[in-house]
Design a protein around this nucleic acid. Structure first.
Ligand SMILES: [Mn+2]
Ligand SMILES: [Mn+2]
Ligand SMILES: [Zn+2]
Ligand SMILES: [Zn+2]
Lengths: 130, 130
DNA sequence: TGCTTACTTGTAATCATTTCAATTTTATTA
DNA sequence: TAATAAAATTGAAATGATTACAAGTAAGCA
């Protein structure tokens, strides 16, 4: 549940991702606001502290972090992505009435998405190795 | 696996959804093309048969069918929705390499989304009943 | 057949996300 | 510390999926 920000910055170094002020602030925001925030929420949340912050930077940062496996994108909303610093395997729930994400619920729909590599592409990878 | 189109049209009647030419064609397309098509694919697939068909109608139709529980939307793509006439609970897989949805795979990411009603809203529902 | 209501259509609007080029910052080296 | 190259930030503009809207059309019913 608790993310080690120091550990994350080390991972950034490992992935050759520069430790810019903006990136660290976005990470810190995700760590302190465990509500699967949208880009809009991150933007407004950091606006006071960094008035010059651009939404483009937030998008760039999040995409970098996703690429490095440090953040996960949640597509439970139909029109807006949400972001999660908790990359452990866990489900997400959205209430049909209040539209909040909460614990303890009556479930009506379940969706499971997997991403990986199919047998055909696995086979082609083997060929490359030899 | 096999969908009974006759059964579906009966469900449409039950839900007071009119059996328009366009709606039946969209349903037929979803039934015959079990590839979780996008709106774009449905549009081009039906274009020859119904040259006047509008994308807006496809969106309207799909939203109506989703509302009635006859179709499910799949948000595994980051930028474009896909649609499934199979409403049974089942997972979806996307290959990272060829980007196709297939069977038999090595899994790297798993995502579970639930939708339902939270305890708070459940409680309020009870109050309405009495 | 005629009536009412809901559906279809094309265009325009919306809005999350990406592209782009100029400026700034980071990390490195002297 | 200063110089440098590479990468990041920024804001404006572009993109593109989806929705809103208003006028024309078709479905269902008597
Ligand atoms: Mn989560
Ligand atoms: Mn499916
Ligand atoms: Zn609720
Ligand atoms: Zn593949």
């Amino acid at each position: 549940m608790k993310t080690n920000l120091e550990g994350i910055t080390n991972k950034l170094k490992d992935n050759n991702i520069r430790l810019s002020h903006q990136r660290l602030k976005v990470l810190e925001y995700l760590d302190r606001h465990r509500i699967h925030p949208t880009v809009e929420q991150i933007y407004h949340g950091l606006n006071e502290e960094i008035p010059t912050l651009s939404k483009t930077t937030i998008y760039n940062t999040l995409n970098k972090l996703i690429e490095a496996g440090l953040v996960k994108v949640i597509t439970i909303e139909d029109n807006e992505a949400r972001y999660d610093i908790n990359t452990d395997f866990h489900g997400h729930f959205k209430c049909r009435t209040c539209e909040k994400g909460l614990d303890g619920f009556r479930i009506y729909t379940r969706d499971m998405y997997f991403s990986g590599i199919c047998p055909r592409c696995s086979e082609q990878e083997k060929c490359k190795d030899s």
